[in-house]
C-alpha cells in the first residue's frame, strides 16, 4: 500500500473511536455522543442484521443521532488508557505532550469536516472560514460545542501588559520569543471535560493532558489554512484549579496574509 501507515504504536488507538467519542451532543455537557462512525456497531442502531449484511459506511447518515451517545465515564476511561498507553512509550513530558497532540490532530481533521458538514450542508451556499478571527471565534464556540458540548470560556490575545500569568506562560512556551513577534492568541477553558478525572503527579506538574485538545485545534486551523503551533498549558487560578490555556502561535505567512487582506 502506498499510503503512510500510522505509527504501529498508535494503531491500537482507532481514531474513529476517539473521533466519535469527541462529537458531543449539544443536549448535555456530560454525555458524549457517538457519531455514525463506521467502525462502531451501536446497539441502538437499525434492527439487528446479520454481520454479512452490515450496512456500509456510506449508508449511514452523518447527522447526529440522539440515541447514539456514550457516557462521559466511558470516554474518561478511554482517555485515561490513551494517556497511560502513550506515557509508557515516551521519554519525557514534551514527548508525551507531542504524542497526545498528534492523536488530537487525527481527531481534529475529522471533526472539522464533520462539524462543517453538519452546519453547512443544508445551506444554499456552504461557506468556509477564510479570515483568522472568525475562524478563532468558530473554534471557541462551534468546535468546543461539537466536541465538549459547550463553548470555551474565553478568547484572549496576550498583549504586552498581559497579566503575570500569561507572560510567565509565554516565557515557558517561547523562551526565545522575539520582541517583534506578535502576541499569540489563547483559548481558555476553566474546566476541560477531558482532564476532569486526571490528577497529574507533582513531579510532572508541567504536563497538560489538554495537549490532545491542542492537537484538535491545530488540525482545525491547519485545515482552514492557518498553519500554527498550538500548545496547552495549565494556568490554575484560585477559583478554577483546572483552568487550561490553549496557546495558538500562528505561522508568519498567515500573519502576513491577514495583514494583506485587511486592506
Amino acid at each position: 500500500m502506498s499510503y503512510a501507515q500510522p505509527h504501529p504504536r498508535f494503531s491500537v488507538l482507532s481514531s474513529s473511536s476517539l473521533a466519535s467519542a469527541e462529537h458531543l451532543s449539544t443536549a448535555s455537557s456530560t454525555r458524549f455522543s457517538l457519531s455514525s462512525a463506521p467502525s462502531i456497531n451501536t446497539a441502538t442502531g437499525a434492527p439487528a442484521k446479520s454481520p454479512a449484511q452490515r450496512p456500509s459506511i456510506y449508508d449511514r447518515p452523518l447527522n447526529k443521532a440522539r440515541a447514539a451517545e456514550v457516557s462521559a465515564s466511558a470516554f474518561a476511561f478511554l482517555f485515561s488508557e490513551v494517556v497511560q498507553y502513550t506515557q509508557k512509550r515516551v521519554s519525557g513530558i514534551n514527548d508525551l505532550e507531542r504524542r497526545l497532540n498528534t492523536l488530537g490532530y487525527r481527531v481534529g481533521t475529522r471533526v472539522l469536516e464533520l462539524m462543517t458538514w453538519r452546519n453547512e450542508a443544508s445551506s444554499k451556499a456552504p461557506k468556509r472560514e477564510i479570515r483568522f478571527l472568525p475562524a478563532l471565534m468558530s473554534i471557541h464556540t462551534q468546535l468546543w460545542r461539537a466536541v465538549f458540548g459547550r463553548p470555551a470560556d474565553a478568547i484572549e490575545k496576550s498583549v504586552e501588559n498581559a497579566d503575570e500569568c500569561a507572560s510567565a506562560l509565554l516565557q515557558r512556551a517561547q523562551p526565545m520569543i522575539l520582541p517583534a513577534d506578535p502576541a499569540p492568541d489563547m483559548i481558555i477553558d476553566n474546566d476541560p471535560p477531558i482532564t476532569r478525572h486526571i490528577s497529574v503527579p507533582r513531579d510532572m506538574s508541567q504536563l497538560s493532558c489538554s495537549s490532545f485538545t491542542a492537537g484538535v485545534v491545530e488540525a482545525v486551523l491547519d485545515g482552514l489554512g492557518f498553519p500554527a503551533r498550538v500548545t496547552a498549558h495549565n494556568t490554575p487560578t484560585d477559583q478554577y484549579p483546572a483552568r487550561t490555556t490553549i496557546l495558538i502561535k500562528l505561522e508568519k505567512s498567515v500573519l502576513d496574509r491577514e495583514e494583506a487582506l485587511k486592506m
Binding site: 455514525s36 463506521p38 459506511i57 452523518l62 464533520l114 458538514w117 456552504p126
Partner: peptide, 23 residues
C-alpha cells in the same frame, strides 16, 4: 462532499490515502 466526509471518518483513511472503495 457527503461521501467524502463519510470516507474520512474511517480510521483507515488518511489525508493521502487514495480512495479505492467500490461503494
Amino acid at each position: 462532499w457527503e461521501l467524502y466526509v463519510k470516507t474520512m471518518l474511517n480510521p483507515f483513511h488518511t489525508a493521502h490515502t487514495p480512495i479505492r472503495s467500490p461503494v
